[in-house]
Design a protein around this nucleic acid. Structure first.
Lengths: 235, 235
DNA sequence: CGAGCGATTGAAAAGACTCAACCACCGTGG
DNA sequence: CCACGGTGGTTGAGTCTTTTCAATCGCTCG
């Protein structure tokens, strides 16, 4: 759904995003040419396999990037938060989206047409460098997860997933003593790369061990340090 | 071991590599500043965790990029062939190597110091764009493999690995009717993300089915189409 | 109220891993 | 020349993790 126009110049997520490499006039250019849309939970922003005609900047809401495995099971590639861009991989390589993007909750997202973005990128080498670094960071993380997927048991991957969710979505400025979030068991399984029943069983173990609280969809992380230890993240 | 200086201007792998974006004077600059080294099979080109001081261009030989899992098992991230660059991810993001590079057979590799490379990159936007696209392609592949690692059984992943090796190393100009290559069962297992015994058993199944020939280290692909079908690569 | 979705649990089965033993090959040094 | 050690390959047995299937439950929404 088309929504009221948001302004990059005053967007509070800009500090975290690629756009902090942009100058005032570039931001104005963006604001004039972009379109802002709100998506409801479950709505698809773009589909795996279709061609990009621009890229997206998330103003608010949580998004999942996910791929379909050949057996119909879904793998969540990355979780996305306000300030993040999505769709740049496909745009930069002029290839189809290799994953779909779906809103996990109501989200406001700005669409920047290809031409507008490239016209800025052409003269802004800091932005280009930032984009390159972003791709590098994505690649490093993806290769790390690839390795872990191969050798870590599900319990370790689940612990890591919980920590990754905390790192992604926790409010750094007003950090609560305990971090909570909502996610379906199915999505969590898709993120970890396992079956939803397995997630349920392992979560209930972790609950018994006092590592987390789980109340329906809402999961609270009680012992982040222990989860990090279980995940063997820094071995 | 330091070896005789190779010349980028006349390097036959250049057409396939990032360096086809470079002009004559840039190539001369590279040739003057790079150092060429030969590595024996098993020798390490760089180590996971150390800092890059430049990047590498493979002149000849096969290389593996591999990461250590937390339980000590090795995951092969990518197989590298002549003309390919390695080490650019770490260099571009000024972060430690996230994987090691090891020669699978005798290899000649040129080292380009950071300063030389960046001095060229700064004024060559085509090279910069090529590098960005390369990162995009790496990312897409890594995310695809991540998804497959999560859901595909080992037999499918093994079939896919064999096809990927063929696609990487087969000589396109003088393609033999049957493609053969040498790799240890251990490395193959590291590529697929499984135990070496499992690879052995599945290879011997595939041999019985007439999909491949296997004579010690040497594997010959007899039925690439059937392997592609087994791998469910294009589902 | 009934449909539907998500969560939960149990039981059975399958896939893959580990462990252990053994073999084959190769190069070395006595 | 041959015994030796090392590396890589092979095989079998047992085990364990994880998946799959099936049934049940609770909740929300039309």
């Amino acid at each position: 759904m088309k929504t009221k126009q948001l302004h990059c110049e005053t967007c509070k997520t800009r500090g975290d995003s690629l756009l902090h490499f942009c100058h005032q006039n570039e931001l104005e250019n963006l604001s004039e040419n972009k379109t802002c849309t709100t998506y409801k939970a479950g709505q698809v922003i773009f589909h795996e396999g279709s061609m990009p005609v621009g890229l997206f900047c998330v103003n608010s809401g949580k998004i999942k990037l996910h791929k379909m495995g050949s057996d119909g099971k879904e793998q969540i590639i990355r979780l996305v938060k306000p300030g993040d861009f999505i769709g740049y991989r496909a745009l930069m390589s002029s290839s189809p989206f290799s994953a779909s993007a779906t809103a996990l909750e109501e989200a406001a997202i700005c669409f920047i047409p290809k031409a507008t973005f490239f016209s800025i990128l052409k003269y802004n080498s800091a932005l280009s460098e930032g984009l390159m670094k972003l791709l590098c960071a994505n690649l490093e993380e993806s290769e790390r997860r690839l390795t872990e997927m191969a050798y870590k048991p599900v319990r370790e991957r689940l612990a890591e997933a919980l920590i990754m969710i905390k790192n992604t979505y926790e409010d750094k400025e007003f950090a609560e003593p305990e971090f909570s979030f909502s996610i379906t068991r199915e999505d969590l399984a898709g993120f970890v790369g396992t079956a939803k029943e397995t997630v349920i069983r392992l979560l209930s173990d972790m609950k018994k061990e006092g590592l987390i609280k789980a109340d329906g969809r809402k999961i609270t992380i009680l012992e982040p340090e222990k989860l990090i230890h279980i995940s063997k993240m820094y071995d």
